[in-house]
Computed example of a mutant assay.
Amino acid sequence: MIRPFLKWAGGKTRVLPELLQHLPKGDCLIEPFVGGASAFLNTDYPRYVLADINADLINCYRVATTETEALISVAKTLFQHSNSKDEYTARRRSFNYQRNAGYGTNIELAALFLYLNRHGYNGMCRYNNNGDFNIPYGKYKNPYFPEQEIRQFAEKANDTKAAFVVADFRKTLTSTAINKNSAIYCDPPYLPASDTANFTQYHHSAFTREHHRQLAKYLKCVRYETDAAVVISNSDTPATREIYQHYQFHEVSVSRSLGAAVASRKKAGEVIGVLNVRRFRYA
């Protein structure tokens, strides 16, 4: 198994064995929510369209692909000399200033994003209402520098000529050349199992229940019009089963990775859903 070089809340590493059983063969895998890119790294499609609304994430992936050695060099220096709360706070401030002012280079911003990802609390990615990255310092003694994983990612991306796109799911599902040989895998921010478990702000605004309803509608339309295969994953909640009611669900159980304490992390139900065009009447 190839591991992602970024930590990512809700990443699919733990459920890959189950997920891979339900991803069909095809000419191209399209991911409107690429996130940590576990599915990309561990599948064998000839082509990939990897999209996300998070421009910082996509920039990091583009730089890792095209400027691999430069990213490793700049990021490694940050990892070697900046593991303290004061250094982290300064680097976070610099990252927010550079991205908002259009000051930093893509390589600098990608290296800072990787640094913040590996040094911030629990590897989370969150922004405030002003669009600033605001995850606190994680207090890790020796944060792992994923040099090998960056190289593996770059090799896979270059071999498959993967396209990295900054776009929301609506644009991805309407502007991409999707056909019957395409496979679409959607791993959107999860519907919360409870109000206290609600965390969906991977971008400047939350991914709401209404967004899930829109996603379900778009996927239903794409499936009907193109016959492309559609697979989703989400938390196993009544809301999930109601919104994605036309899917055949396969239940999986994984450990949550966002708990405040390891001892409090419990097994949580998730589902992998496969959309079959013959199971609904399009309206």
Rank of each mutant, 00 (worst) to 15 (best):
A268V: 15
G26H: 11
G10S: 06
L78G: 06
F207Q: 05
R209D: 06
K12C: 03
L258Y: 11
A37V: 01
L29D: 03
S84Y: 04
D168P: 03
N128F: 00
T66Q: 14
G36N: 01
Y282W: 09
A283D: 09
G10R: 07
G273D: 03
G120T: 09
K217E: 10
K25S: 11
V49E: 10
V15M: 15
V166S: 08
K76T: 02
C221G: 05
F145C: 02
N130K: 15
Q214R: 14
T68L: 05
A39D: 08
H211C: 06
L29I: 07
D236H: 11
Y127M: 02
A167F: 01
L16V: 06
N59H: 12
T176W: 12
P146M: 01
R223P: 00
L258T: 13
L19F: 07
E270I: 02
C186N: 06
I184Q: 02
N181K: 15
N179W: 02
A239R: 13
C221D: 11
E147L: 08
R151A: 05
F280P: 01
Y127C: 00
A167C: 03
A64S: 14
G35T: 08
V271R: 10
I2C: 04
P238N: 07
Y244R: 13
F207R: 14
L57Y: 09
K267S: 09
L191K: 06
G104L: 01
K156F: 01
A229L: 00
D86N: 10
N181I: 00
K180E: 09
S38P: 03
G259D: 08
D227N: 13
Q152H: 12
A101P: 02
Y48I: 11
A90G: 10
E225K: 15
